[in-house]
Design a protein around this nucleic acid. Structure first.
Length: 978
RNA sequence: GCGCGGUUAGCUCAGUGGUAGAGCACCUCCCUGACACGGAGGGGGUCACAGGUUCGAACCCUGUAUCGCGCACCA
């Protein structure tokens, strides 16, 4: 029984069975089929192998291993997240790195997990609460609300983890972490306490970015500056001491004028030298406010006079502090106006109030003009509404280890790729502002600070009270609550989500205070793969935390991915609906196809425009690979033993029991293969074609040129990949893999050796060819494996390149080249033949015989060795015969070409029915003459030339020229026939 | 305003001083025993523009245009 029969069961069929029968039991063949499916069907194969890898614990990292460690921590996706193409790119890259490291014999830890995503998650659950129960979070209370969030997380959270598995990610899932895990939370508190004790964390009233929808403070990084088309209002305030005299002021925010406590001008402004120190009348609520002089005011902008609203603008606040101005807050936290003195505005939304305030000014005759104006407005990253600068009591962190962190990147201890991001990083590090780490949310790590109950109310009410005003006995900062908890009350705020994320590389590997073997083995991590958009949010902060808490850099290399855009160059986003669902793409093209397609385009250049056709290419490539192997199966067993059915179903696809014999296809028949221990650091997947095995073994120097050529090219591929990996050039790797398989292996080698697999071939030729195929393909599949893990595993198993119970993904890549002899001469011959074949096919096509098989060629002055290869050449060219004849005298007009193999002639006689061909040519000529007439008629028509668009005329002219050329060619061919 | 990146075939993109490339799309022929998710052949580019360096420039330098991104300002 041969392979064709075993593999005759459609993949999907036996996979289903194997899944159903997964506990063991006999595996039976379905109804016999004649052939493997022609097209590769990835879905079931991918699911099957992922399950097998998990069963085999292939992804689990052993800190006790003697092997060199290699580690990556995943950038934890939001627990609410749904997989998008950015995730796919990012995680496919990490998977490639992890799988490649395993092939290099390293002990690999790819540590996965999710992020609790404070605002995003809380918002989601709040919305659900509102939709389903019609209540807000305050209605249910903090404790109950948090219970709901956890419930939601257990039920819906982590969808993205399942999706990453679908993609084939080889994470050590036994170590999955969540930023709200108890152990992780302890780290967060501990870090807060430590930093507090060092005096780096403090609490105070400051101007922060306030999100009126989420009702929380945001860090500067969470504010997105967005260009807006706004209006610039110019109004006038009357001078208090000179009725009828005004000062003109421009503003974009008239709705905050109730909070104005001054008007500022530049001290150098000649227009206003006489104004400084006087007072103007604020229109509503009526008040007299001073005109002050401050350097900050730009003389050139607007009227040169600036209204100062210290409560609602960062710059105004600073001016207010400098001049000791009163701070009047006229906004509620949710963005509504708070101004009882103006009842008509009080309680209105800020944007509604703006219109009303303008109307009021106009009615009072104080509005001068309204202009269209483009400016930038800060938007909340999550809630997508304009933020409000707002003064509030918050916790701030002064960043630790800034200099060390900056130096680490500058001096190359941490290497950024592409390197240019180092500059962006350096710039940010030089301009650090304190980090506002408190958030007025419930979902997150609560600030580990307790206040004495009796003092707490005072703290809350007295807005000026700073934490540092509290006596040491009134505040407790610690990981655990104070002993007499009843008399304390905890700070209500939670921490910014990034305040937990920045600990990720080490907090996932060890508990607080734990002597962790994992940390010792795998920290610092080797590579971090992430998007440049979170270089400040996450990367920079992790580096600082690494120095502060883990004694050094958290990673050695950072690979910044590209941003995936749509074909119009827009960012992928849910609201635009331009983001294809990766799961759909995987259903359609397979995870391997998606991975490979993305790898070919995405990791190069800056941004990348995503086009589904690239995924289609990936799918097509997988199919090509599959069919190359299918070809091998159809060619039969060669000198290998016969097939038997696997006795047990292990959840792994059926593999020949004696698959080892395939591994030694060219070794002595009957010799027992060495069985490699799983722990063996370097088991060869497939021994190189033996150069010295026992009787019957083929020597490499006896192989035909095509064989040596492809072996040499495989070695070159392996070496090339080594270089590309060293430079993280993932697109280049994909391209090299693609070209080898398609252009070299399939288009050349496979075509050249087909004769060796025909019935008529000698057993030796057949054995040599199958052996070469297996040697090259087995190693190629291994090289391919990090990019397309599923199909390569499948094919390696089916082809018997990997023993039952073992996995390709665990095999170490052999360092030795396959080639053991000098192949330069053979490669030169192969190259000459391939090139000559191309030239000869050109000739055929030129004479419109591209698809005919009865063409005969004569080669004059051919090298002697070509005699052995002329049949192969004939096959490559698609010729009936290739004659080597040094004495050949070509008839005049015989088509000819110069090739590396000598002059090649393509005599036409006997090829075609001359009479019929003449008729055909004559008819063709007639047809074209007609076209020419049409063309000429058109171009001769004055009104066409004048009225038609110029490009159409040009096109028509070009067409005419083409017809003329063609006509001449056909004429020559006709002449050659007579 | 400062900085970074891009501009190469119809499209998406490679290409670090030596004859302009790939895939897709297009045209012609072919369902030939691995593959039509395929094979053979073909057309198509003033490498954004202008200077410069060089024997030689898509590539190095200078400037311009244009698109995108980041930072700062924005009354």
């Amino acid at each position: 029984m041969g392979w064709a029969v075993v593999l005759g069961v459609p993949a999907a069929c036996w996979i289903e069975r194997s899944v159903l029968d997964k506990g063991g039991g006999l595996w039976h063949l379905g109804p016999p089929m004649s052939e493997l499916p022609k097209a590769y069907e990835p879905q079931a194969v991918e699911a099957k192998w992922y399950a097998a890898w998990m069963d085999g614990k292939c992804f689990e990292a052993d800190p006790a291993s003697a092997k060199e460690g290699y580690s990556i921590v995943i950038p934890p996706p939001n627990v609410t997240g749904i997989l998008h193409l950015g995730h796919v790119l990012n995680n496919a890259l990490q998977d490639i790195l992890a799988r490649r490291a395993r092939q290099q014999g390293k002990e690999v830890l790819w540590l996965p997990g999710t992020d609790h995503a404070g605002i995003a998650t809380q918002t989601k659950v709040e919305r659900q609460l509102r939709d389903e129960e019609g209540v807000g979070r305050r209605d249910v209370g903090r404790e109950e609300f948090l219970k709901r969030v956890w419930q939601w997380k257990e039920k819906h959270g982590g969808i993205i983890i399942q999706q990453l598995k679908r993609l084939g990610c080889s994470c050590d899932w036994s170590r999955e972490r969540f930023t709200m895990d108890a152990a992780y939370s302890k780290w967060v508190s501990q870090v807060f306490v430590d930093l507090f004790k060092q005096g780096l964390i403090h609490r105070g009233k400051r101007m922060v970015n306030w999100c009126p929808v989420s009702l929380t403070a945001l860090s500067d990084e969470e504010v997105i500056m967005t260009p807006q088309r706004s209006k610039l209002y110019t109004m006038r305030y009357e001078l208090a001491d000179a009725a009828g005299e005004y000062i003109e002021i421009s503003t974009t925010r008239p709705e905050t004028l109730m909070g104005d406590t001054a008007v500022a001008v530049n001290p150098k402004d000649p227009r206003y030298v006489n104004h400084v120190g006087r007072k103007v009348k604020r229109p509503f609520p009526p008040a007299e406010i001073p005109i002050i002089a401050d350097e900050h005011v730009d003389l050139a902008f607007g009227t040169g006079a600036l209204k100062i609203t210290p409560a609602h603008d960062k710059a105004d606040f600073e001016i207010g502090v400098r001049h000791g101005l009163e701070i009047i807050d006229v906004l509620h936290p949710d963005g509504r106006i708070h101004c009882p003195a103006c009842p008509d505005l009080d309680g209105l939304d800020r944007f509604v109030a703006r219109k009303k305030a303008v109307a009021k000014l106009e009615a009072m005759g104080l509005l001068i003009k309204v202009e269209e104006y483009d400016n930038n407005v800060g938007f909340s990253e999550r809630a997508h509404v304009p933020i409000e600068p707002r003064i509030s009591m918050q916790w701030f962190l002064k960043y630790p280890c800034v200099q060390q962190a900056a130096d680490a990147v500058a001096n190359g201890d941490i290497k950024f790729r592409p390197e240019r991001w180092a500059k962006t990083y350096a710039h940010w590090m030089e301009n650090l502002q304190d980090w506002c780490i408190s958030r007025q949310l419930w979902w997150g790590h609560q600030i580990p600070v307790w206040y004495r109950k009796d003092k707490f109310a005072a703290l809350r009410d007295a807005e000026s009270l700073d934490m540092h005003d509290l006596g040491a006995g009134d505040i407790h900062v610690g990981v655990d609550a104070p002993a007499d908890a009843a008399s304390w009350v905890r700070d209500e705020d939670v921490m910014d989500t990034w305040f937990s994320s920045w600990l990720w590389p080490f907090a996932t590997m060890a508990e607080v205070g734990e002597e962790s073997p994992t940390l010792r083995k795998f920290y610092p991590t080797c590579d971090l793969v992430t998007g440049p958009d979170i270089i400040f949010f996450w990367v920079a902060r992790m580096i600082m935390a690494g120095f502060q808490f883990a004694g050094g850099v958290p990673f050695k290399n950072v690979y910044f991915t590209t941003i995936i855009r749509d074909l119009q160059g827009r960012k992928m986003s849910k609201s635009l609906g331009n983001s294809p669902d990766p799961i759909d793409l995987m259903e359609k093209y397979g995870a391997d196809g998606l991975r490979f397609g993305l790898m070919r385009i995405a990791p190069v250049g800056s941004d990348v425009r995503f086009d589904e056709t690239s995924v289609e290419e990936g799918r097509n490539f997988a199919n090509k690979l599959y069919n190359a192997c299918r070809f091998r199966q159809m060619a039969g067993e060669g000198n290998a033993g016969s097939l038997t059915l696997p006795e047990r179903n292990t959840g792994v696809p059926p593999v020949r029991e004696d698959s080892a014999s395939r591994l030694s296809a060219l070794e002595t028949t009957g010799s027992k293969p060495v069985v490699h221990d799983r722990q063996d650091a370097c088991p060869p997947v497939n021994p190189p074609i033996s150069a010295g095995a026992g009787a019957g073994a083929l020597q490499q120097d006896q192989l035909p040129p095509y064989h040596l050529d492809i072996i040499a090219k495989l070695d070159a591929l392996a070496a090339g990949l080594e270089e590309s990996y060293a430079e993280y050039r993932f697109g280049e790797i994909a391209q090299r893999l693609y070209e080898f398989l398609w252009s070299e292996f399939c288009d050349k080698f496979l075509e050249a050796v087909k004769l060796d697999l025909r019935e008529s071939a000698t057993p030796e030729a057949r054995a040599a060819t199958l052996g070469t195929f297996d040697a090259v393909m087995s190693r190629y599949l291994q090289l391919m494996s990090p990019y397309m893990p599923h199909i390569t595993e499948e094919l390696s198993a089916r082809m018997g390149y990997v023993r039952e119970g073992e996995y390709l993904m665990q095999q170490v890549l052999p360092a030795t080249p396959l080639l053991t002899v000098d192949a330069a001469a053979a490669q030169a011959r192969a190259a000459a033949i391939y090139e000559a074949a191309g030239r000869m096919r050109n000739l055929k096509a030129e004479y419109k015989m591209g698809s005919r098989k009865d063409v005969r060629f004569v080669i004059k002055s051919a090298p002697a060795w070509l005699a052995d290869e002329s049949k192969v050449l004939a096959l490559l060219v698609g010729a009936a015969e290739i004659r080597l004849d040094s004495a050949y005298e070509a008839v005049k007009g015989t088509p000819a070409a110069v090739t590396p193999l000598g002059e090649v002639y393509m005599p036409l006689e006997g090829l075609i029915d001359v009479a019929a061909e003449r008729v055909r040519l004559s008819k063709e000529i007639e047809r074209i003459e007609l076209e020419v007439k049409k063309c000429e008629g058109k171009l001769g028509n004055a009104s066409f030339v004048e009225r038609a668009p110029p490009e159409v005329v040009v096109q028509e002219t070009a067409r005419l020229a083409e017809w003329h050329t063609k006509l001449q060619q056909l004429g020559e061919m006709l002449a050659a026939l007579t």
